[in-house]
Amino acid sequence: MTTKPAPKIQRGKRRRSLEYHDSIWGYCFIMPMFLGFLVITIAPIIATFVFSLTDKNMLRPDTTFVGLKNYADLLSDPIFQATVRQTLQFTLLLLPANVIISLLLASLLKDKFKGCGFFRTAIFTPVVISVTVWGVLWRYIFQTDNGLVNSLLKMVGIQGPQWLFNTTLAIPVSVFVTLVKGIGMNMVIFIAALQDVPTEYMEAAALDGASKPRRFFSITLPCISPSIFLVLILTTINSLRVFAQIKALTNGGPGTASYVMVYYIYQMAFGSYKFGLASAASVILFLIIVLLTVLQWNMRKRWVYHED
């Protein structure tokens, strides 16, 4: 009788031993990924924070600690101030246009009809094209003298503007090119979300006499709100980090009229070799992205369906 509990203890020990044994192997298996994450992601982030407190210049041997001087210099630099404004302008123009147009396209293409595959493919194709190739292609389309756009305008007697050499147009044109490139991805996300909206709700609302706009705003939109939230977050982050389109289209010009944050960072790091200043600008961009993402994340509770 007294020996009966012993096997239970042994079984428990063996189980724990097996769990322990498995967990060790588990850690070993994730270790390469974890180390890669540390070395490729975490270490550069830490290095960026550290460099931002120094006057590091890639082509100078000496580096000294300068505290928050880089941040002070940046915040008092009129070009950096304009760059932040232009980046936010880019985001504010792109975000609503991207969400509304991709949702509109998804609404049109969610149902199967003859030719819908062609349209879906045509709209999605720019997503898989290299962003640099895309930028160069559009630079030719927007050429002043012999570009496609101005040639078409000339055919109807209109003298087209210098699309890429105009301080007012440079950012909107860049937004347009970015919009056309990325809209296919958001459209696919919305098509998947729209196809998941329960048809029973729509049928019940139709029976109750709800109009199409009412059904869209009262049923469809709440049902796809998690997808809208996802698209908002991704588009915001991507628009704040825009670079290649600007580099290929306007090279930041005319003057600094189309400088955006990442282009400014690139210019500081590889044009001026001022890594300390570029790192400080990177940290500011990081903080802006974190701030906007946290803001959106907290606001989701008010309007995202299925969320607590």
Partner: peptide, 19 residues
């Protein structure tokens, strides 16, 4: 010199842009 060139380029662009 690279910074000088960049600045010269920026202001010439602004002249062409009519600023």
């Amino acid at each position: 010199w690279t910074l000088f060139q960049t600045t010269a380029e920026q202001y010439h662009e602004l002249i062409w842009a009519g600023s």
